[in-house]
Design a protein around this nucleic acid. Structure first.
Ligand SMILES: [Mn+2]
Ligand SMILES: [Mn+2]
Ligand SMILES: [Mn+2]
Ligand SMILES: [Mn+2]
Lengths: 141, 141
DNA sequence: CGGATAACTTAGCCGATGCTAAGTTAGCAT
DNA sequence: ATGCTAACTTAGCATCGGCTAAGTTATCCG
């Protein structure tokens, strides 16, 4: 019964980096017009070589376009992933804030949690944000 | 300000597998007396070779003891990590259930989420389980 | 226009986590 | 006691996501 759980986790991890990258690339393009590798170096606190490899995988997987020494762009597929990732990320972060967690902790924890939140959990969090907490389980009555 | 977030995530990922392993090893020993590699193969749905390598890393890092072809045991350090991981894992899972998420989804999502929940978020979840939901943010009044 | 410099790529390395295939050991049943 | 079988290890491979070091290109300034 439990046999597929860890396969799901491994799959989540495989797509995690792509989700973080496209979301950030999309943000940077919105704010600055273009996204350069150096912006990603700064954001993720990794080296240029690491960003170059990661962007190469995004291109290979059809999420991004790039020509050597030129700014990075997203494909339609990349933009779709970015939207989905941002919605989930923001929902998780807002939910944690609503739970009483500080801005700092909500920012940090949501960055990891977001990738492991399935539809049902996401919907439950969203419901809290729009409709408030679910009913308490009443003891008597 | 945001510069350490992704380092935290990378650190979480590095310890994630060890946490899952020691928790499961501890469970299996509780239930069956001993834990064999084949039990972990079954649980994680990976091959024997993969388990053998992973257990090798646990031994290298001081979480487990093992002699060739013999059952796996945990060190004191391993047992401490298992307890901590189980507490966090169960808190996250119970919290999701409390949120209205199904048993199935809570089991799957908590398996990934647990590793990214910091102290503040964990405490907030635990508080909900013992004291109920935090106050709604009142509009008027 | 020509450098200097910043941005980027490439090569080569590492460890973690997965795999298959092949070899080894332990333990049970006859 | 011996041999079968299941359990386990080892070797060899792949990909990912990091790194450093070295080479390449773009860009901007004088
Ligand atoms: Mn994100
Ligand atoms: Mn993230
Ligand atoms: Mn766990
Ligand atoms: Mn887990």
């Amino acid at each position: 019964m439990d046999s597929h759980t860890h396969q799901r986790i491994r799959r989540d991890h495989a797509t995690e980096l792509a989700e973080d990258y496209v979301e950030v690339i999309d943000d940077i393009i919105s704010k600055s017009g273009i996204c350069r590798a150096v912006d990603l170096v700064e954001h993720f606190q990794v080296t240029h070589a690491t960003v170059s490899n990661a962007v190469g995988r995004l291109v290979r997987d059809g999420f991004a376009k790039s020509q050597a020494y030129q700014p990075i762009e997203l494909t339609a597929k990349g933009k779709r992933l970015a939207s989905k990732a941002r919605y989930r990320h923001e929902t998780v972060k807002s939910f944690l804030r609503r739970l009483g967690v500080s801005e700092e902790a909500a920012r940090i924890d949501s960055e990891g949690i977001e990738h492991h939140v399935g539809k049902e959990t996401l919907d439950a969090m969203q419901r809290v944000l729009t409709e408030g907490w679910p009913a308490e389980p009443e003891a008597g009555e």
